[in-house]
Protein backbone atom coordinates (compact mmCIF):
# COMPACT_ATOMS: atom_id res chain seq x y z
CA UNK A 1 0.00 0.00 0.00
CA UNK A 2 1.22 3.43 -0.88
CA UNK A 3 1.57 5.93 1.93
CA UNK A 4 -0.60 8.95 1.23
CA UNK A 5 0.85 12.22 2.50
CA UNK A 6 -1.07 15.46 2.29
CA UNK A 7 0.76 18.78 2.31
CA UNK A 8 -1.69 21.28 3.69
CA UNK A 9 -1.89 24.51 5.70
CA UNK A 10 -5.25 26.22 5.62
CA UNK A 11 -3.61 29.52 4.76
CA UNK A 12 -2.46 30.34 1.26
CA UNK A 13 1.03 31.32 0.19
CA UNK A 14 2.89 29.63 3.02
CA UNK A 15 4.81 27.23 0.79
CA UNK A 16 2.63 24.16 0.28
CA UNK A 17 3.48 23.66 -3.37
CA UNK A 18 7.17 24.40 -2.79
CA UNK A 19 7.10 21.82 0.00
CA UNK A 20 5.20 19.26 -2.08
CA UNK A 21 7.75 19.59 -4.86
CA UNK A 22 10.69 19.39 -2.46
CA UNK A 23 9.42 16.48 -0.38
CA UNK A 24 8.31 14.41 -3.36
CA UNK A 25 11.62 15.04 -5.11
CA UNK A 26 13.50 14.19 -1.94
CA UNK A 27 11.68 10.88 -1.55
CA UNK A 28 12.29 10.01 -5.21
CA UNK A 29 15.97 10.96 -4.92
CA UNK A 30 16.22 8.34 -2.19
CA UNK A 31 14.85 5.72 -4.55
CA UNK A 32 11.21 5.67 -3.46
CA UNK A 33 8.69 5.56 -6.27
CA UNK A 34 6.67 8.70 -5.66
CA UNK A 35 3.70 10.46 -7.25
CA UNK A 36 2.78 14.05 -6.50
CA UNK A 37 -0.77 15.20 -7.23
CA UNK A 38 -1.82 18.82 -7.61
CA UNK A 39 -5.23 19.16 -5.93
CA UNK A 40 -5.46 22.87 -6.64
CA UNK A 41 -7.94 22.51 -9.48
CA UNK A 42 -8.27 25.77 -11.39
CA UNK A 43 -5.07 27.26 -9.97
CA UNK A 44 -2.50 24.85 -11.32
CA UNK A 45 0.96 25.66 -9.96
CA UNK A 46 2.83 22.48 -9.20
CA UNK A 47 3.71 21.92 -12.87
CA UNK A 48 5.52 25.27 -12.91
CA UNK A 49 7.53 24.53 -9.78
CA UNK A 50 8.38 21.09 -11.21
CA UNK A 51 9.17 22.59 -14.60
CA UNK A 52 6.86 20.31 -16.54
CA UNK A 53 4.19 22.79 -17.61
CA UNK A 54 4.97 22.32 -21.27
CA UNK A 55 4.35 18.61 -21.03
CA UNK A 56 0.85 18.70 -19.54
CA UNK A 57 -1.63 16.94 -21.86
CA UNK A 58 -4.14 15.32 -19.57
CA UNK A 59 -4.80 16.15 -15.95
CA UNK A 60 -6.19 14.82 -12.67
CA UNK A 61 -9.81 15.67 -13.57
CA UNK A 62 -9.51 13.93 -16.94
CA UNK A 63 -8.46 10.78 -15.12
CA UNK A 64 -11.29 11.06 -12.58
CA UNK A 65 -13.82 11.52 -15.40
CA UNK A 66 -12.37 8.62 -17.38
CA UNK A 67 -11.34 10.89 -20.24
CA UNK A 68 -7.75 9.72 -19.96
CA UNK A 69 -5.92 6.87 -18.32
CA UNK A 70 -3.67 7.48 -15.34
CA UNK A 71 -0.71 6.42 -17.44
CA UNK A 72 -1.48 9.09 -20.03
CA UNK A 73 -1.82 11.83 -17.42
CA UNK A 74 1.22 11.08 -15.24
CA UNK A 75 4.25 13.15 -16.21
CA UNK A 76 7.63 11.64 -15.51
CA UNK A 77 10.02 14.02 -13.81
CA UNK A 78 13.17 14.79 -15.80
CA UNK A 79 15.48 14.93 -12.80
CA UNK A 80 14.28 12.04 -10.70
CA UNK A 81 13.84 8.57 -12.08
CA UNK A 82 11.16 7.62 -9.56
CA UNK A 83 9.02 10.76 -9.54
CA UNK A 84 5.75 11.31 -11.39
CA UNK A 85 3.53 14.37 -11.43
CA UNK A 86 -0.24 14.38 -11.83
CA UNK A 87 -1.14 17.96 -12.71
CA UNK A 88 -4.36 19.77 -11.82
CA UNK A 89 -6.85 20.91 -14.39
CA UNK A 90 -6.67 24.63 -15.05
CA UNK A 91 -10.09 24.91 -16.71
CA UNK A 92 -12.31 23.16 -14.17
CA UNK A 93 -13.19 24.03 -10.62
CA UNK A 94 -12.74 22.09 -7.41
CA UNK A 95 -16.19 20.50 -7.55
CA UNK A 96 -14.83 18.26 -10.27
CA UNK A 97 -13.17 16.26 -7.48
CA UNK A 98 -15.28 13.52 -5.95
CA UNK A 99 -14.40 11.17 -3.11
CA UNK A 100 -14.97 8.16 -5.36
CA UNK A 101 -12.89 9.65 -8.16
CA UNK A 102 -9.99 10.59 -5.91
CA UNK A 103 -10.06 7.21 -4.21
CA UNK A 104 -9.99 5.45 -7.57
CA UNK A 105 -6.90 7.37 -8.66
CA UNK A 106 -5.13 6.82 -5.33
CA UNK A 107 -5.88 3.09 -5.40
CA UNK A 108 -4.63 2.82 -8.94
CA UNK A 109 -1.38 4.58 -8.05
CA UNK A 110 -0.97 2.24 -5.12
CA UNK A 111 -1.58 -0.78 -7.36
CA UNK A 112 1.00 0.54 -9.81
CA UNK A 113 3.67 0.20 -7.14
CA UNK A 114 3.96 3.78 -5.92
CA UNK A 115 5.36 3.91 -2.38
CA UNK A 116 4.45 7.50 -1.63
CA UNK A 117 1.66 9.70 -2.92
CA UNK A 118 2.03 13.38 -2.07
CA UNK A 119 -1.20 15.38 -2.25
CA UNK A 120 -0.56 19.09 -2.74
CA UNK A 121 -3.58 20.73 -1.12
CA UNK A 122 -5.13 24.02 -2.18
CA UNK A 123 -5.48 26.74 0.46
CA UNK A 124 -8.64 27.04 2.50
CA UNK A 125 -10.77 24.45 4.21
CA UNK A 126 -13.30 23.98 1.44
CA UNK A 127 -13.97 21.08 -0.87
CA UNK A 128 -10.59 21.03 -2.64
CA UNK A 129 -8.58 21.04 0.57
CA UNK A 130 -10.93 18.48 2.08
CA UNK A 131 -10.49 16.14 -0.91
CA UNK A 132 -6.71 16.46 -0.64
CA UNK A 133 -6.62 15.52 3.04
CA UNK A 134 -9.49 13.02 3.22
CA UNK A 135 -7.48 9.92 2.27
CA UNK A 136 -4.23 10.94 3.97
CA UNK A 137 -2.28 8.60 6.24
CA UNK A 138 0.16 11.36 7.10
CA UNK A 139 -0.15 15.12 7.02
CA UNK A 140 2.57 17.69 6.66
CA UNK A 141 1.11 20.94 7.92
CA UNK A 142 3.03 23.89 6.56
CA UNK A 143 3.03 27.01 8.68
CA UNK A 144 4.77 30.35 8.59
CA UNK A 145 5.94 31.76 11.91
CA UNK A 146 3.10 34.24 12.26
CA UNK A 147 -0.12 34.04 14.25
CA UNK A 148 -2.73 33.83 11.50
CA UNK A 149 -0.88 31.06 9.69
CA UNK A 150 -0.47 29.15 12.96
CA UNK A 151 -4.16 29.41 13.76
CA UNK A 152 -5.15 28.21 10.29
CA UNK A 153 -2.76 25.28 10.68
CA UNK A 154 -4.40 24.48 13.99
CA UNK A 155 -7.79 24.49 12.28
CA UNK A 156 -6.63 22.16 9.54
CA UNK A 157 -5.16 19.79 12.15
CA UNK A 158 -8.57 19.69 13.78
CA UNK A 159 -10.24 18.87 10.48
CA UNK A 160 -7.66 16.16 9.77
CA UNK A 161 -8.31 14.41 13.06
CA UNK A 162 -12.09 14.69 12.84
CA UNK A 163 -13.15 14.56 9.19
CA UNK A 164 -10.58 12.48 7.36
CA UNK A 165 -11.14 8.87 6.42
CA UNK A 166 -8.80 7.66 9.14
CA UNK A 167 -10.70 9.75 11.69
CA UNK A 168 -13.95 8.20 10.48
CA UNK A 169 -12.41 4.77 11.00
CA UNK A 170 -11.36 5.77 14.51
CA UNK A 171 -7.67 6.00 13.58
CA UNK A 172 -5.40 9.01 13.78
CA UNK A 173 -3.62 10.75 10.95
CA UNK A 174 0.11 11.00 11.60
CA UNK A 175 0.80 14.73 11.75
CA UNK A 176 3.96 16.73 11.17
CA UNK A 177 4.61 20.42 11.38
CA UNK A 178 6.86 22.12 8.86
CA UNK A 179 7.71 25.74 9.61
CA UNK A 180 8.71 27.64 6.49
CA UNK A 181 10.05 31.15 5.81
CA UNK A 182 11.82 31.11 9.15
CA UNK A 183 14.07 34.03 9.84
CA UNK A 184 16.09 33.57 13.04
CA UNK A 185 17.19 37.20 13.00
CA UNK A 186 13.63 38.47 13.05
CA UNK A 187 12.73 35.96 15.73
CA UNK A 188 15.52 37.38 17.88
CA UNK A 189 14.22 40.88 17.32
CA UNK A 190 10.78 39.73 18.36
CA UNK A 191 9.21 40.41 14.95
CA UNK A 192 8.50 36.77 14.27
CA UNK A 193 7.19 33.83 16.28
CA UNK A 194 9.92 31.44 17.36
CA UNK A 195 9.71 27.81 16.36
CA UNK A 196 9.18 26.89 20.03
CA UNK A 197 6.16 29.18 20.20
CA UNK A 198 4.69 27.68 17.05
CA UNK A 199 5.28 24.18 18.29
CA UNK A 200 3.81 24.96 21.68
CA UNK A 201 0.63 26.29 20.14
CA UNK A 202 0.25 23.45 17.67
CA UNK A 203 1.47 20.69 20.00
CA UNK A 204 2.63 18.39 17.25
CA UNK A 205 5.81 16.80 15.91
CA UNK A 206 8.23 19.16 14.19
CA UNK A 207 9.31 17.81 10.81
CA UNK A 208 11.57 20.68 9.96
CA UNK A 209 12.24 24.38 9.86
CA UNK A 210 12.91 25.83 6.43
CA UNK A 211 14.85 29.09 6.65
CA UNK A 212 13.61 32.10 4.75
CA UNK A 213 15.88 32.23 1.74
CA UNK A 214 16.23 34.04 -1.55
CA UNK A 215 17.16 30.75 -3.14
CA UNK A 216 13.60 29.40 -2.71
CA UNK A 217 12.08 32.09 -4.90
CA UNK A 218 14.83 31.75 -7.43
CA UNK A 219 14.40 27.98 -7.59
CA UNK A 220 10.63 28.34 -8.00
CA UNK A 221 11.01 30.71 -10.89
CA UNK A 222 13.47 28.37 -12.55
CA UNK A 223 11.16 25.41 -12.04
CA UNK A 224 13.71 23.59 -9.93
CA UNK A 225 12.50 22.10 -6.66
CA UNK A 226 14.63 23.74 -3.97
CA UNK A 227 15.76 20.39 -2.59
CA UNK A 228 18.02 20.01 -5.66
CA UNK A 229 19.93 23.13 -4.57
CA UNK A 230 22.34 21.45 -2.19
CA UNK A 231 24.19 24.69 -1.51
CA UNK A 232 21.21 26.50 -0.01
CA UNK A 233 20.09 26.33 3.61
CA UNK A 234 16.51 25.75 2.48
CA UNK A 235 17.51 22.84 0.23
CA UNK A 236 19.47 21.23 3.06
CA UNK A 237 16.63 21.81 5.51
CA UNK A 238 14.25 19.99 3.12
CA UNK A 239 16.75 17.13 2.85
CA UNK A 240 16.68 16.88 6.64
CA UNK A 241 12.89 16.97 6.65
CA UNK A 242 12.69 14.09 4.17
CA UNK A 243 15.10 12.09 6.33
CA UNK A 244 12.90 12.70 9.38
CA UNK A 245 9.81 11.77 7.40
CA UNK A 246 11.47 8.42 6.74
CA UNK A 247 12.09 7.98 10.45
CA UNK A 248 15.72 9.07 10.68
CA UNK A 249 16.90 11.15 13.62
CA UNK A 250 18.38 14.39 12.38
CA UNK A 251 19.10 17.47 14.49
CA UNK A 252 17.31 20.67 13.52
CA UNK A 253 19.51 23.24 11.82
CA UNK A 254 19.28 26.90 10.80
CA UNK A 255 17.41 27.90 13.94
CA UNK A 256 19.75 30.61 15.11
CA UNK A 257 21.46 33.65 13.64
CA UNK A 258 24.97 32.29 14.27
CA UNK A 259 24.62 29.67 11.58
CA UNK A 260 23.93 32.34 8.98
CA UNK A 261 26.72 32.77 6.49
CA UNK A 262 28.17 36.07 5.42
CA UNK A 263 26.37 35.86 2.09
CA UNK A 264 23.00 35.32 3.62
CA UNK A 265 23.46 38.35 5.80
CA UNK A 266 24.19 40.29 2.64
CA UNK A 267 20.97 38.98 1.12
CA UNK A 268 18.95 40.04 4.11
CA UNK A 269 20.33 43.52 3.97
CA UNK A 270 19.36 43.87 0.33
CA UNK A 271 15.92 42.34 0.90
Amino acid sequence: MAKIIVVTSGKGGVGKTTTSAAISSGLAMRGHKTAVIDFDIGLRNLDLIMNCERRVVYDFVNVINGEATLKQALIKDKRCEDLYILPASQTRDKDALTKEGVEKVLNQLSDDGFEYIICDSPAGIEHGAFMALYFADTAIVVSNPEVSSVRDSDRILGILQSKSRRAELGQTVEEFLLVTRYNPGRVENGDMLGVDDVQEILATTLLGVIPDSESVLKASNQGLPIIHDKESDAGQAYQDAVARLLGEKVDHRFLSVESKSFFQRLFRRSA
Binding site: D154, R155, L157, G158, I159, Q161, S162, T204
Partner: peptide, 8 residues
Protein backbone atom coordinates in the same frame (compact mmCIF):
# COMPACT_ATOMS: atom_id res chain seq x y z
CA UNK B 1 -6.70 13.07 25.22
CA UNK B 2 -5.78 14.80 21.96
CA UNK B 3 -5.34 18.54 21.39
CA UNK B 4 -8.58 20.42 20.81
CA UNK B 5 -7.99 22.47 17.69
CA UNK B 6 -9.26 25.80 16.50
CA UNK B 7 -12.78 25.42 15.15
CA UNK B 8 -13.52 22.27 17.13
Amino acid sequence: TTPVRSGQ
